[in-house]
Computed example of a mutant assay.
Amino acid sequence: MNNFTTIDIIFVLMLILSLYLLVQVLKQEKSLIEEPITHNKKRYLIYPDKLIRQCGISPSHYWLWYWSVKLVSVALVAFLLIEFFDSILLIVCGSILAFFLIDVSLLFKRSARRNQINQSLVFFTNLLIVFLKSGLSLSNAFRKAGQFGLHKNNPLAAELELIAYELDAGRDRAEAFDQLSSRTGVESLNKLAVIIKAGINVGSPVSDGLQSLADFLRLQQELQLTSRINRKALESTFPMAMVCFPMFFVLVFFPAGQQISDIMSLLGEIL
């Protein structure tokens, strides 16, 4: 009984520690302004710094949390499987899946973050054009568009604040906008960076290219919305068919089958 109580206490402590570490790792937009230029300080570790940065997390600050969650997850799953199962293969497979659990959660988080940025990009681009035409500098236009056009919890707002901070600090504009698209992994931001870099190098107005980009992004969003509606309509067709088929069978096939049966019985009596 004492041994079972000790096991329960260890299990609860490991579970609490694992949940705490997971929350810390997945905390959004943490310390991005503290390190405007991201360097890979842990090159000797197998560490997905690019994936973590695209999730809105500073890689240099979270490598310890990342590996702690991995090790705690493996220990927790292995402990549970050992307690309830005797299969070594099951224990090994469960431990391997637990080892990559944090990576899968980061992939989902990156996908959700990219979708949120894409949804906010059209309005931000239009607002950026307005501020640029009003005479603001590029860094101030980015900062104002992020402050007044986006919610403070929006991941795009954090990235805009960061790039404005970099431009004010004197970083090369072409390099800063290249890093913007690399930090997020959003293809539309890459197009935005290309347009701004081309305008800076050639000396042409950036607002004209941004207006074309805004129109393209708006059309792309409309096509995605139409495709999503069509997919939902197609997905709803199958359950509707499953629900309507019994009624269709009762109203159409059953009376017809009954009439055919009566006719065959009548023919049998005549013959």
Rank of each mutant, 00 (worst) to 15 (best):
L192V: 12
Y62C: 04
F108P: 01
V243D: 01
L89V: 08
T125V: 14
D172W: 07
A256C: 09
V92W: 04
W65N: 08
L64R: 12
Y165T: 02
N126L: 09
K152V: 12
V12D: 03
V72Y: 04
D8C: 09
E166M: 04
F248K: 02
I117E: 02
D172Y: 05
P48L: 00
L89W: 09
I91R: 10
F11A: 13
E35C: 07
M1A: 15
E83R: 14
C93I: 11
T125A: 10
F238G: 12
K30R: 05
S204Q: 13
E222R: 15
L136N: 07
F142Q: 00
L266F: 15
G56N: 09
S18W: 07
Q224G: 14
R173K: 08
T5H: 07
S58N: 15
S139K: 14
L219P: 01
A98N: 04
V92Y: 01
I52V: 13
L32E: 08
A169W: 02
L127T: 10
F249T: 03
S18H: 01
L26M: 11
T237Q: 14
K109G: 06
I163M: 00
G135L: 03
I117A: 03
A157E: 05
S18V: 00
L64V: 05
Q147K: 15
R231C: 10
R53L: 12
L51Y: 11
A256P: 06
S60Y: 05
I196R: 06
L71R: 11
I102G: 01
K41R: 12
N190E: 13
Q119N: 13
S105H: 05
L81I: 05
E187A: 11
L167E: 00
K232A: 15
F254D: 12
S60W: 06
P205Q: 06
W65K: 06
F177A: 00
D8G: 14
S31M: 01
V92A: 09
I196D: 08
I91Q: 03
Q259W: 07
Q211F: 11
N190M: 04
G94L: 03
E34T: 05
V104S: 07
E269L: 14
E159S: 02
S261R: 10
L223P: 01
K133T: 10
K30P: 08
Q179N: 12
R173C: 00
F124A: 02
I196G: 13
L234I: 12
Y20V: 02
S236K: 11
